[in-house]
Design a protein around this nucleic acid. Structure first.
Lengths: 231, 231
DNA sequence: CGCGGCTTTGATGTTCATCAAGTAAAGTGG
DNA sequence: CCACTTTACTTGATGAACATCAAAGCCGCG
């Protein structure tokens, strides 16, 4: 299932300047020898609820979903992680086992770093510790904010939220290809699949978006933002 | 508004053995001289959305709510914090300003510790850093879990959730006095005040609970748990 | 080529918020 | 302490928002 990805040197990794900027050359070297980069094809599992947490994982490339399995046919998506996000959330510190499953929704590359190594850096390198926690706190804080954002809105506001999320925060374009199915959108924003489709169709009829299968273009950003703001 | 509470010595504080157990005697002494314990009467604000974050705050005693103000008459409650919880959540690391307001819903004692001091301990004391982050991660993780729990349920399941929350996790008793109004329950679980009342009345008629004003007794724990599990 | 999963639309019914109106409780000023 | 005001609570009636059911077309995949 998993294919080992072409391994980079951590020194050249974009994440060095982000989360790991405060590591010394030796520490970086140690990470470099111990880290594992794995490639996941769209649809492949990265981890499953209940798996033991051994590594600190962050997304180098692609897009993944965090979710809980509710029934055989229904999942509940907690969040969509984008590159640079720490995809195990805080569980890495507060749990022994993953509390969510993670699956790639686009071809993705995940970097695994042994958790004990990260912990040893936290212990020995205080500057790193502070910076590191700022970064992972932001990711979790954002999940909370997103959940609240979604709950306080109704259908149109939620769909507008999702469209704006992909457009502004993930693809940086008004034109993109939806990485998830209508059903997954429904599972992400707590509504029925049928109503996701209905609202999308309504938005198309009202010329807010152009949509054909997975391909979406936002035509009227202002109106969409109004739907988002008004709930 | 705020009344200075009788100040304890950190050495005798129950929290020493919990979050601060890995601090040395000198470090503890430093906290002791710098910390401020404040007493808040029920209803008093501890902080307001937008306030600068200067301190790390944890709840020694009482009960507080975290919320966002939506309109003049409506708030949205994010969570209820109980003793030992870190009430600023992760914002302390990822934000300069509080993103939620905090108000006491019971008479409460909050301990304020200068954030810079905490950060300096994180830098200098690695064992403390790891332990400390485990603790605050658990609190935030729990907020996420709770939000998901609530959204995936409908009215009866949500009310059951709230009742079980107070009974099991806060008061450890089937008999307790509700610390929040019907309106606040509504704001916490995203439903209308009227329907909170309706479901509570229904539960009373069905002999699941006995309720008179704020005083509640759970009569049929099993049925209540069934409502919670089935949503 | 046929099966299962995804998508779409319409019809129906349930769940829920909102409105209205009244009672009880809790502050507030004289 | 009492009239007064406000805020909390409660119940019923109504309609809006939404899920569910049903049926059909579509597409990919073995």
């Amino acid at each position: 299932m998993e294919i080992n990805h072409k391994v980079h040197n951590c020194k050249d990794c974009v994440y060095r300047s982000w989360a790991f900027k405060n590591l010394s050359d030796e520490e970086l070297k140690l990470i470099n020898t111990k880290k594992v980069e794995k490639f996941y094809r769209k649809g492949e599992h990265i981890c499953v609820e209940g798996d033991e947490i051994k590594d600190f994982m962050y997304l180098q490339n692609g897009l993944v979903k965090l979710y809980k399995t509710e029934t055989n046919t229904r999942e509940h998506i907690i969040s969509i992680a984008k590159p640079k996000d720490f995809i195990g959330l805080l569980s890495v510190f507060s749990n022994k086992a993953h509390i969510y499953s993670i699956t790639a929704i686009e071809d993705s590359v995940v970097c695994f770093v042994d958790l004990e190594l990260i912990k040893s850096f936290i212990k020995s390198n205080g500057i790193f510790a502070i910076d590191f926690f700022e970064k992972i706190s932001a990711v979790s804080d954002n999940v909370i904010k997103t959940r609240v954002d979604i709950n306080t809105r109704q259908l149109r506001g939620r769909i507008a939220y999702i469209l704006l999320l992909f457009s502004k925060h993930i693809y940086n374009s008004t034109k993109f290809s939806l990485p998830i199915s209508r059903k997954e959108i429904a599972e992400l924003i707590d509504m029925s699949t049928e109503n996701v489709i209905r609202v999308l169709s309504e938005f198309r009829k009202d010329k807010l978006i152009q949509i054909e299968g997975k391909s979406i273009e936002i035509l009227d950003l202002e109106k969409l933002e109004k739907f988002y703001e008004l709930g």
